[in-house]
Nucleic acid binder design. Structure first.
Lengths: 191, 191, 191, 191
DNA sequence: TATGAATGAGGTTTCATTCAT
DNA sequence: TATGAATGAAACCTCATTCAT
């Protein structure tokens, strides 16, 4: 196993342990044991436990940011783009539950470095989309930050519900997305 | 200062420290120092640090549950009731930012006892309201769990936004609530 | 309840708790709870936990010393006196198991004050008896300290056995005492 | 220094400190200091202070059990076997005073795990010897448990006396052993 | 580069003791 | 005199981190 693979393995094992027992309940030797390496080896890749967690946070956020824009096409109608992003985020979350839990649980944690948390703005393209749509009158005349919060909040909330055992798929999923779109669009004209 | 007051003080100091430094970053002596008592005194009121945190969680959840239904009147139209609850929750959160942060940050934390977390169902009256409204055709034909998630998720998300510096009040607040109501109501008939 | 009675109650409760959980496992509040007094009250009678235990040790040793000589009569033959003392000690121990356990378990404990442990010599009359008997040729020609150790060791050992469930009474007890007497007397002439 | 050696060192240092200051008066850092290791190191070898003490008890009991039977030969006459065992135990105790103190002081302590205390029966071969000797008429017709208690009690008692400054050796030792043998043998026939 | 035994600072918790009531 | 809440020193123990191998 080469170095990048080992690094990834350590991060994955840290993630699963943290989801199970919390950051506080996960020791470096625990991570080492699950990854099948020595505790010291972890310090070949990460300066400290904190930095490992920071790195994990960054990578998961980047991964989410990439998923967000999968198949994005600026030529599609606003509603289609909204639906695409909503679904990209939703499916990314429910297909990677540990990443979802980690990102939402620790987003505000003092354990995550302030600069890491700010990091890059994963939602930049969405902000742009929302600003354009608003200007064009395609969606409700609301501050884009608010619209983004409504969008993001609804996905988080429903992914959580799904993972807790209320399945959201098929027609229910479609109706749910329509509901979110109604919130965003308001009584604005259709494109 | 009598005993219940001291107990409350300890809980309040624990809350503020946990918001600042996380549970992990808050030691019992830290809490004691801020509360102006000896470390041992905390163990007069709580069996352990864990139980202190559990108690905090329970009390904040109960307090939120009470705020939720302030002024609730089953004779009001559905939309009014929805607006009332939305605002109750929103104002409770933005007026008690630490409680808000604590409840949302640690809802899923392994630090919170499983039985404590389940506890009583604060949202029971809302579930009932949503079920009735759905049956009567006043809102979108969506599983009440989903509607509740949309409602709760939007409040969380917007309270968070507000506390991060994007003020939501006045007309913006009204439009935001209308947006959430649109999501819930869908194309259903007005009452 | 007057003061001396309360003092005795505290000592008795301390004794029973110490036998159950050890000195280390018995806290002053524990003793207070069992005695039905406040923790602070114990400090009206004893300067410290250590001094309470010292006092307990002293009183139990004095009580044992008194039991030892019950019915002693210097005019009796040596064997009779030996039998009397052996039985006095044996019955005192098996009738007061907690006192027995405490005295034997903590005789050498660093918890007991050195001066307390030395204290008065409970065995003085016995030493005298053994010296006389030895001089008179009635018992084996062995250092009285050794004879005393043999006597005391055998009682301890058999009281322990009895309390652990091997009953020593009736003819068995008689034969056992005879055995001890044989050890002490040796091939010396009968009186 | 390799691991087993370090483990043994820790046990030996714990033993000497416990004899000096009691279990309660011996802290884990104390043991670490005397052993020249860090406090945390002790937890590499033992799960807890309690388990360290349990282990110590077990090892000393095993060591005593081994000493007991040194040179044992079932072909020797009963008296010789009795003398051998008596001396084995006596010399083991006076040559390892700390082990002797520890074993006798804590045999009944609630600190020692119940299962540890029961453990293996170190005296099994002696019980067998005593039963045989009794059946063959070589010793007094007394329950073997009682005879064992007399034997064990006398050794304990005399080792204690010796260690307190009354030397028992040479002719005195011989006479003392004869005394114990007289107690056991009674008026039974010589072999 | 990888190991894992060792470290020791710092955590939680206990409990003998005090003192205002 | 009696109380028991409060104290805070000191206990046990964990675990992020280091470093000789």
């Amino acid at each position: 196993m080469n170095s990048p693979e080992k690094r990834e393995l350590i991060l994955r094992c840290a993630l699963s342990l943290i989801i199970e027992h919390g950051i506080h309940g996960t020791s470096v030797p625990d991570v080492a044991r699950r990854a099948g390496v020595a505790a010291g080896t972890i310090y070949q890749f990460f300066q400290s436990k904190e930095q490992l967690i920071d790195t994990l946070y960054q990578e998961l956020k980047t991964s989410m940011g990439a998923a967000l824009l999968r198949g994005y096409d600026a030529d599609l109608p606003y509603e289609e783009r909204f639906r695409l992003i909503w679904k990209n985020l939703f499916f990314h979350f429910i297909e990677h539950p540990d990443e979802f839990r980690f990102l939402t649980r620790y987003v505000d944690s003092p354990i995550i470095n302030e600069t890491t948390r700010r990091g890059t703005d994963e939602y930049k393209p969405i902000r742009k989309l929302l600003r354009e749509a608003r200007r064009s009158g395609a969606i409700r005349n609301l501050n884009s930050e608010i619209t983004l919060a409504l969008l993001y909040g609804s996905v988080i909330s429903l992914a959580d519900l799904h993972l807790r055992g209320t399945p959201i798929r098929g027609k229910v999923l479609e109706e749910t997305i329509r509901s979110c779109w109604d919130a965003v669009r308001g009584s604005a004209q259709h494109q």
